[in-house]
Design a protein around this nucleic acid. Structure first.
Lengths: 187, 187
DNA sequence: TTGCAAAAACTAATGGCGTTAGTTACAATG
DNA sequence: CATTGTAACTAACGCCATTAGTTTTTGCAA
């Protein structure tokens, strides 16, 4: 029998992201990963140096997936608030649909991966373009990009960590907060 | 010799927060905690059911400390933007000074602790007061509170996770992002 | 002050994790 | 078909949380 296709880094990384999305990032262990790939955990060391390296690979793939998702959301939108709104909503949606992958995307791998850095800069570039209608200098642009990213991450992360008591709809809060920030860009 | 004062939950919780601030939340283990208290780890089970319960106690104490810090920052400030600015800066400063305690404060204990909920609501109340100058209804207030909390948490968390490439000053970004959000409250 | 019960320390052991070392099976290449 | 490298395996170690069972300490009542 067998006839099993040989395992490689990509297949392992995909399975790891799948587990993270299904059961949470903290359940991605060498044992769980090996189990789902129907091998024993020491065999994984033929492909990765250790769990840290697996997580690095997850980060790189994850931030790239996030970038693709945000890019598509921005296509065809008018520059300025319309694009920012679209990207912001896509960010929140991505985190909701792929919680584990999102988690992986915000954990910067150490040591720093070039691919991770590149994908991160691509996302910055995406937002940067949408800001061209506001007259901001280079530094101000970076501040705004960081602020927007922070707001979006905070909205996503606090929801996930149970930081909001219910009663008031969370998605409404996310939408309204984004509007407040966008509104604040006009001075 | 000895004459050691009997250990209790409070002393253990304080030591746990101390370790978290010094070496990071992930280094708070039963073994490390016991080691610093010069006992063996099974002895901790005379005081807590397990690590989860220790972390619950940390959360409760941590969010209360955060609340005290924010409350003091708001004293004597004019309502509205001035108070929001003060509380926001205090939030960021707290996370910088006490990274482990901050970490504990945003991880909602499960099962939900009443004390945790109360301290959380106290923080909401603090921000709520500062918003009275803006004419917002109940729901809108909650949205703004959540948005502000999210922005602040995002700014703090992304910095910690290495989500900002350097070059542009992070503290400037934090300050400017807060201003953008505050500015967005005027419509 | 002494004796006793409760509290809190201890040792020993289990099972799960990441990881390493050493060994075997497979599969591609000549 | 033989060889060689790849990728699987088993066995073992150290660290972790946790449990069970035992001994020491402590506070209080007689």
């Amino acid at each position: 029998m067998s006839r099993r296709t040989r395992l490689n880094q990509e297949m392992i990384t995909n399975k790891a992201l799948e587990i993270a999305d299904r059961n949470g990032m903290e359940t991605v262990t060498m044992a769980a990963l090996a189990g789902e790939l129907t091998i024993k955990s020491p065999s994984l060391y033929n492909h990765f140096k250790g769990l840290t390296e697996v997580k690095q690979a997850m980060s790189v793939k994850a931030i790239d997936l996030l970038y693709q998702h945000l890019k598509e959301a921005g296509i065809g939108k008018k520059e300025g608030s319309e694009t920012i709104r679209a990207i912001g909503k896509a960010y929140i949606e991505f985190a909701k649909q792929h919680p584990g992958t999102y988690d992986a995307s915000i954990t910067a791998p150490y040591p720093y991966s070039e691919n991770f850095q590149l994908a991160g800069e691509a996302i910055v570039g995406l937002i940067r373009e949408s800001l061209s209608v506001y007259s901001l200098n280079e530094k101000e642009i970076m501040h705004v990009v960081r602020g927007l990213r922070s707001l979006l991450h905070g909205l996503v992360d606090l929801k996930r960590k149970g930081g909001f008591n219910l009663q008031v709809d969370i998605e409404d809060s996310q939408e309204m907060s984004l509007e407040t920030f966008i509104n604040g860009l006009n001075r």
